[in-house]
Design a protein around this nucleic acid. Sequence first.
DNA 1: CAAAAAATAGAACGATCGTTCGTTATTTTA
DNA 2: TAAAATAACGAACGATCGTTCTATTTTTTG
Lengths: 231, 231
Amino acid sequence: MNFEAFKHMAAVSMEEICREIFAENQASIKIKKEAVAVKNLANIFDTALTLSNEKGFQSMSLRDLSRTSGLSMGALYSYFTSKEELLEMIQNQGRRLTRKVFTRQIDPTAPPDEMLRAAMRTHLYLTEIMQKWFYFSYMETKNLNKTQQKKSIEGELETEQVFIDILEKGVREKQFTVENPVLTASVIKAMLQDWYVKRWKYARRQISVEAYADFVIEFVEAALNINHDRL
Amino acid sequence: MNFEAFKHMAAVSMEEICREIFAENQASIKIKKEAVAVKNLANIFDTALTLSNEKGFQSMSLRDLSRTSGLSMGALYSYFTSKEELLEMIQNQGRRLTRKVFTRQIDPTAPPDEMLRAAMRTHLYLTEIMQKWFYFSYMETKNLNKTQQKKSIEGELETEQVFIDILEKGVREKQFTVENPVLTASVIKAMLQDWYVKRWKYARRQISVEAYADFVIEFVEAALNINHDRL
DNA sequence: CAAAAAATAGAACGATCGTTCGTTATTTTA
DNA sequence: TAAAATAACGAACGATCGTTCTATTTTTTG
């Protein structure tokens, strides 16, 4: 599947996400009307992600956020109860989205090699669309409290488990040669994460997400010594 | 080469590093006597790295640093002129160390496959010894000013270039099959960096740096379709 | 179009930040 | 061991932080 098709199919947009956040956090959000809330939440999150990814969440003051978003300090506090909660909202949404897209896009009955390719492509395409969000989640885990940090770690291990399961399925069905599925899944994940963590590097070299996906898939398949003949 | 041998050979220690920092930054450091300076610098850097890696450099106040290190606020400012400079000192030292160890440990006349293995092992072993420093450098680039950020990017590309050169040498000497040396170097670097960025994960799974090195080397060699017979 | 409800504005508060500086303690020198 | 040099101390300063709260503006309702 190419990137454009995925983008259309996944249907993840800032507006869609903010509608979910609004529904999920009605307790903290003082705004009543969805239309107003969604519009401003999109503005707030987009601005917060941009500023945070430039100079870090802690270094972004709420006055920065106010100035850049155009909303007053008082208005901002109608959408979250504290700066910490703003951080948690972004992190929670990132996790929820990842889980949803992964379970929706990967067919568990497909042959393992196909599943592996689908998982890698889905990971790359999703993080390409939502680069700001994933980069933020990756870099700002430290600023979370212990409870939220634990959730973040669980999220990391959960997506890794997706790859472990696929690899083990491939071994069982004698399609892959994988001696250590856990470490293999680890390095695959590392390669996939590099795409959104070092986005600047690939942008500078004008490498598209599709080119990167093609490359990583081929690289991994060569390492796994995949036997396509068994299909 | 195993990890213990490398550790002994590389001879990088906190004291050694602080002596270098002292020599390099005599202009900013108000302390005259090396013995005093090195002792306290080691304390300051070690504490700063621990606190920063826990909750981020910006979130670490100089009062935190003072309390935990046992040095007064005034004393701290005898070792750096500003918090920003403290950050730069750590970053500069990390870069200098990487460059030095890399050029010292890799023999440019060795066969490419040997060079590749040496480069990967050196990277992993060095970042294992200096995990705190590399994790810090990786996570705190955003807090640097533009000039320092540029240096950080150059450093990243410089170590990547080491791998590109080795891969291209391997292709020229017909020992590797590498269609895209730049992307290949990129993903190799991503796998190597994962070791110190996700240190908690590997610690939890009780995977040693040697085990990880063995695995990554084997994984990469399988992907590159290395022909050992040509040696 | 007036009253009620919803949303925004921005000054004010106490806490904490990085940084400075006059003083005190420690070490070296002669 | 007294004088000089070096190092450490910690209270104080102004700036800025997250947060609150009342006043004002905008939108909806009847």
